[in-house]
Amino acid sequence: MKSTLLTRVLPALDAVGYALAVVAMAQTAVMILIMMYEVIVRYGFNAPTLWANDLTYMTNGTLFLFGAAWTLRMNAHVRIDFLSTRLPVRLQHLINLAFYICLFLPLIWMVGSSQASKAMRAYVRRELETMSAWEPIVWPFYAGITIGIFGLGIQVIAESIRHAIGLADPKAVRPPGAGEHVQA
């Protein structure tokens, strides 16, 4: 059971988060190119676009959610752990597990399903972005936000499993808060 989780289930769940992060990386590059394009055509050719602004915020507004899952996996969401790391490791796992199960997963579920129904409604009604000269359809943007939220949810499930394993056998997983060091 434990080894199935550690060798099959968790890597599969992690892979979802990483795949979303790769999309986010591509989005980052695309977003910068869009802004650059707008600058060039506006300044150089007196031909500003009506779409660059909308496309930019839509890209930026989804990419940070696409990357949120992998950021959790890499433990790059900042914690203040100078007190908590003094607690027994099992207790730390219990705290994180309880937080995820009792608070965070219900939160993700409620926010995510509400965002999903908004995306659905926008798709059915063919809603347009209202305050824009371009007026693009908004459901892809809403759908992106929804995917990002549920992607984070999947990673939270994976981390919950890790904390549950850690609660039973602290040596089987890394201690809470430990992870890759983000070097920027």
């Binding site: 506006r42 031909a47 500003p48 009506l50 000269a133």
Partner: peptide, 26 residues
Amino acid sequence: GVKFRTLGNWAAILKDGFGAAPVVVP
């Protein structure tokens, strides 16, 4: 050819009716 910041239908009218270049600026 005037780079004119505005929104919505006025942007469309300026562009199609008078050849202005509407710009989107927050």
